[in-house]
């Protein structure tokens, strides 16, 4: 009887998904669906939060006040994105503290791109253009994800993201049109970020074990390779327009498929970075841990202040 019940529940659940009816927090859902979403949403949240670090690195050294204000606003947006996503994970029963502890202990993953250093101001351009560009490519289809709270968070995020990419491209354009040294700086940033940005879409389809199930559940709408191809096709003409060269000798327009062929991605490097051996993995986690420790007194003070305010209000009321 019980098994029969589960079967019916699962069938109704899949029927909803097939009919594009969103799943909401209190609805019945298979445990694997819940776990898959908790993993994906919390990883996504961690990426937003850790993603603030490479850019935070340049806020105090932005070349002028306009750039500084823009970069600050962008980084502040990313903090907001982290919050929307942690909240979405909580609707599935994830514990906020535990989720963050899992990041700090190295148990939880985040996007490997943020384990690369930002060495020059031009990297702020490359990150906005390519990293936020790739993030948008990933996030736009997630606005139609089957889980309501995740989809709604993505709608907000996507609205905010569009300026992120533009401000990055503006930095690149300005440098590319500047002195020879400035142009070389932009090219160097593109050289370093191009391949890691393409890796952001995850392993090739044949090695991506979760893709099929995630697509049946409409958590994912495109495969990793499809998204990567879209990214290449959109970005190459943008680079050409501002006179920068994509660092790929194998890049070639393929008329038949109506897209670019591109070179082999170094998946060894990708897995090394995922496993914790990227240039900045240790540094990023260490910074996060310290931020939490050093912020402890602020949270304590907030608690004390809240207590005091409550006391004052009850006194007033009596």
């Amino acid at each position: 009887m019980k098994e029969h019940n589960i079967e019916v529940l699962e069938r109704d659940f899949q029927a909803k998904i097939d009919n594009d009816i969103k799943i909401e927090p209190k609805d019945w859902m298979p445990d694997e669906y819940r776990q898959t979403l908790i993993r994906q949403i919390s990883q996504h949240a961690h990426s937003e939060v850790v993603g603030m670090l490479p850019e935070g690195n340049w806020i105090t050294r932005a070349p002028n006040l306009r750039r500084k204000a823009v970069l600050l606003a962008k980084v502040q947006d990313e903090a907001g994105h982290g919050l929307y996503l942690y909240s979405a994970a909580e609707t599935l029963g994830a514990d906020r503290e535990q989720t963050i502890d899992d990041l700090h202990s190295g148990k939880a993953k985040y996007s490997s791109i943020f384990n690369y250093p930002t060495l020059s101001w031009a990297d702020m351009g490359a990150v906005g253009w390519l990293v936020d560009g790739a993030a948008i490519m990933n996030q736009v289809p997630l606005c139609r994800c089957s889980y309501g709270p995740y989809a709604r968070a993505m709608v907000r995020v996507c609205k905010e993201e569009s300026f992120h990419q533009r401000q990055g491209f503006e930095i690149m354009t300005t440098l590319a049109q500047g002195t020879a040294e400035q142009k070389a700086m932009a090219q160097d940033a593109l050289n370093r970020f191009w391949w890691p940005a393409l890796m952001m879409f995850g392993p090739p389809d044949e090695d991506s074990k979760h893709t099929k199930q995630s697509m049946d559940w409409k958590i994912k709408r495109h495969t990793n390779d499809e998204l990567r191809q879209m990214m290449v096709d959109i970005t190459v003409p943008q680079a050409e327009l501002i006179g920068l060269t994509i660092p790929d000798p194998d890049l070639k327009w393929n008329k038949e498929k109506g897209g670019y062929d591109f070179g082999e991605i170094n998946w060894d490097e990708f897995w090394q970075v995922v496993k914790g051996n990227g240039p900045c993995n240790k540094d990023r986690i260490e910074t996060r841990r310290k931020a939490k420790e050093n912020g402890a007194w602020v949270r304590e003070a907030a608690n004390a202040f809240a207590e005091k305010r409550k006391l004052r209000n009850t006194k007033k009321a009596s």
Binding site: G80, Y84, A302, A306
Partner: peptide, 18 residues
């Protein structure tokens, strides 16, 4: 959406920021 805060006033302040 939602957020965590020490009390209502802080929740309002954070909601404004986020």
């Amino acid at each position: 959406g939602s957020l965590r805060a020490a009390d209502e006033q802080m929740a309002i302040d954070n909601a404004r920021d986020v």
